[in-house]
């Protein structure tokens, strides 16, 4: 493996932004800042997709993740009025334990990759990430999973509406606990 700074500049810059934003997501005290950092991380991951010849996936990633899911998170944060430091201060031992666990996960996975042989680069297929090609594959080879994901979406929507609906004539758990 050659040294870090001989890598291509786009990869280096994008990886740096991605990791920095990810670190800010998990360490920021304010949840709204976490959401904004995560949106930035998704943007840089989309740029990675463009580098990797997956242009359609880059756009879909922007629309679905940065556009839809993150706006949903932001709306829930605003509706629940959590846009301030609401997390209780925890003891240091939690931080140490989490750091050790995540570091050991990182260590084990990288050690496993070090031992494993890497396949030879087979050369990229042209035009594979464009919508024409992906749509053809989606509508031929992956037709059944495509339809199933439609069913999954409907059931998820029904579940979300059912869960989010306010129950009119049942008292909340909090009131039960207090009485």
């Amino acid at each position: 493996m050659n040294s870090l700074f001989s890598l291509p500049l786009p990869f280096l810059v994008l990886s740096f932004i991605t990791i920095l934003c990810a670190l800010y997501v998990v360490t920021s005290k304010n949840p709204v800042h976490s959401v904004l950092a995560l949106i930035l991380a998704f943007f840089s991951i989309s740029a990675h997709y463009v580098l990797l010849n997956a242009q359609f996936l880059a756009i879909v990633n922007l629309m679905v993740y940065a556009g839809a899911i993150m706006v949903l998170f932001l709306f829930v944060l605003m509706l629940l009025n959590l846009n301030k430091d609401s997390e209780p201060v925890k003891s240091k031992i939690w931080g140490i334990a989490a750091t050790i666990s995540a570091g050991m996960l990182l260590l084990v996975i990288t050690a496993a990759f070090q031992k494993s042989g890497v396949a030879i680069y087979k050369g990229s297929a042209d035009d594979i990430g464009l919508v024409k090609n992906l749509g053809r594959v989606l509508m031929t080879d992956y037709l059944v999973p495509f339809e199933l994901s439609g069913i999954l979406f409907v059931s998820a929507m029904v579940g979300a509406v059912l869960l989010g609906k306010r129950e009119s004539n049942s008292e909340s758990l909090l009131d039960k606990g207090n009485s």
């Binding site: 991605t18 990791i19 990810a22 998990v26 976490s34 995560l38 666990s101 995540a102 996960l105 990182l106």
Partner: peptide, 25 residues
């Protein structure tokens, strides 16, 4: 590295919304 950062967030944070965001990561 990204996966480990997400794992760290899931273990470390207590806010359920931030937990979901770490899973997305």
């Amino acid at each position: 590295v990204l996966f480990s950062i997400g794992m760290f967030g899931v273990l470390f944070r207590r806010n359920a919304i931030v937990l979901l965001m770490c899973i997305e990561l």
